[in-house]
Structure formats: C-alpha cells, structure tokens
C-alpha cells in the first residue's frame, strides 16, 4: 500500500513538473523580444518590400516614383507609428523570402494569403478583397447572392478563375447561362449594358470598372474570397499586432475607403 502511494506520488509530481515546464516554454515563447518592432521604434524606419508592377496598387510614375494604393497605405500606417517608410523594390516571387531573410520588415504588394508559408511568415488581417465578386446593375435588386443566379446570364472572362467557378455554378444552379468574353472589361460592360445579368470577375478588375461606372455595383460578399494582406516576420507578434490595429483603425475611420476612391475611382463605395 505504501509502495503504491509512493509510486502515485512520484507520478503526480512528474506530471506537475511536466505541466510547469510546458507552461514555462509557452510563456517564454510568447515573451520573446520582437526584434523587428524594436528596430522600427529605435530607427524610426519601417522597411517595406514591394514589386512596383501592379497598378493601381504599386507602380512607378513618370518620375520613377513609387505610387499606388499600397504605397499610400504603408505611409498611412507608418504615420500612425510616427515613423517613415523606406521602400525596397523586390520581385514578386521573392517578396516572402525577403521577409523571411530579414531584408525587409514587411512585404506590401497586393499579396494573397499563402497558407503553405504560415510557419515562415505572418499574415496581417485582410485589407482588400481581390477574390471573385459579382457585379450587377446598380438598379438590379434581383441578384443579392450567388444562389440568385439561377436562370440568369453570367458574364465571365474566358479561361479565368471566374470562368472556372461559373462552370461549377452551372452544375449547381438551374438555368444559369455563361456568357464568355476575352477580357474582363468586356464581361463587365455586358453586365452594365444588360447583355448579361451579372459578371463574375476578380475584385481588382471589378473595382476598377465599378469605381468609374455608376450603373453597376459589387455585391458585398465575395463568391470566392482571396484577400490581399501584409506579410510580416513570423516571430514579430508586436509588429503584427500593430499592423492589424492600424488596418482596423483605417477601415473604421474611412482611410481605406478613401484610398479605394483615390486609386480606383469616385464611385468606389
């Protein structure tokens, strides 16, 4: 009996020690210093990588100056931290590597979430929905969601992701007719003119068109979500938190809407 109690005591003690060790390791991991955030604060410089080849998000103007939605957004975030941004031009496919290697503190370049790299980098909350969206005539109230496309004509860009999803929807919804076009603008024109009841198009093309044309509007909910995010170092929880807070604030105070109006058009509401 005494032996059994002794073994029980040892087992309990061991379990308790293991629990304490695990707790300590978790605490230590969550309290590692955030080098990137510290450096930004010490130097007052936020190093941002981008590939300036994708207007209106980032491109070079006639004087070879960086311009675009992402450029303005980065500067707006930096202003909230009272630091300045230095941009570094990096090829699109090397942006994540640049963050991983510590060459920059962030990559802001119309980048989607890449789950495969979630162990290597951190992703901010979304700031722009670039996935597939439905565009309908502004006065049209028939189509509020994707299920309303039954017996409707849907314009798509031939061979695009919208085309592929549209073919899937044809199998799910009765009477849906696909109307393919060679260019996204043609599909959007068809939706605007009534040649089609709606267009299923990527978010960037959709906003570029809708922000200039009052006669159409985007449905709020993306049919296939693929948002743009800011890519950050994986071991920088303070920096990630600060970026997310800034994005939330900019969404709440209308800064992001103002950026959309500036870079896409006046009707970008």
């Amino acid at each position: 009996m005494i032996r059994q109690r002794w073994i029980q005591f040892i087992a309990l003690t061991s379990l308790a020690m293991l629990a304490m060790l695990a707790g300590y390791l978790l605490w230590q991991r969550s309290h590692q210093p955030d080098d990137a955030w510290l450096r930004i604060q010490q130097t007052s410089v936020w190093r941002v990588g981008m590939d300036p080849s994708f207007p209106p998000f980032e491109s070079l103007d006639g004087d070879d100056l960086l311009v675009g939605y992402d450029v303005d957004m980065a500067q707006a975030i930096a202003a909230r931290w009272s630091v300045t941004v230095t941009f570094r031009g990096i090829g699109f496919d090397s942006l994540l590597d640049a963050v991983i290697a510590g060459q920059v503190d962030a990559a802001i370049s119309a980048l989607p979430v890449e789950p495969r790299f979630a162990r290597d980098v951190a992703f901010s909350i979304p700031y722009f929905e670039a996935g597939l969206v439905l565009v309908v005539r502004a006065a049209d109230t028939d189509i509020q969601r994707v299920e309303d496309l039954a017996d409707k004509r849907l314009a798509v860009e031939l061979g695009s992701a919208g085309d592929a999803r549209g073919r899937g929807l044809q199998r799910e919804l009765n009477g849906l007719t696909l109307v393919p076009f060679s260019l996204p603008q043609e599909a959007l024109n068809a939706a605007a003119s009534g040649e089609a009841d709606a267009a299923l198009i990527d978010g960037v093309s959709a906003w570029e068109f809708a922000a200039q044309n009052r006669e159409v509007r985007l449905l709020d909910r993306a049919v296939v979500s693929d948002p743009y995010v800011i890519v950050l170092p994986v071991q920088s929880p303070d920096l990630v938190g600060a970026v997310n807070k800034a994005i939330e604030e900019m969404r709440a105070d209308g800064t992001l809407l103002a950026l959309r109006r500036k870079w896409f058009g006046p009707y970008a509401d």
């Binding site: 080849s53 994708f54 699109f92 119309a110 860009e157 031939l158 061979g159 695009s160 085309d163 060679s182 260019l183 990527d202 960037v204």
Partner: peptide, 16 residues
C-alpha cells in the same frame, strides 16, 4: 502564362 499581374503574362483567352 496568364497570371493577372505578371508583366510577361497574357490574358487566359490569349494563352489558349
């Protein structure tokens, strides 16, 4: 290639 943002890409219909 028909990537929507790659400078050396074409539209999907052109690619086909």
């Amino acid at each position: 290639n028909d990537h929507p943002r790659w400078t050396k890409a074409v539209r999907p219909a052109q690619r086909i």
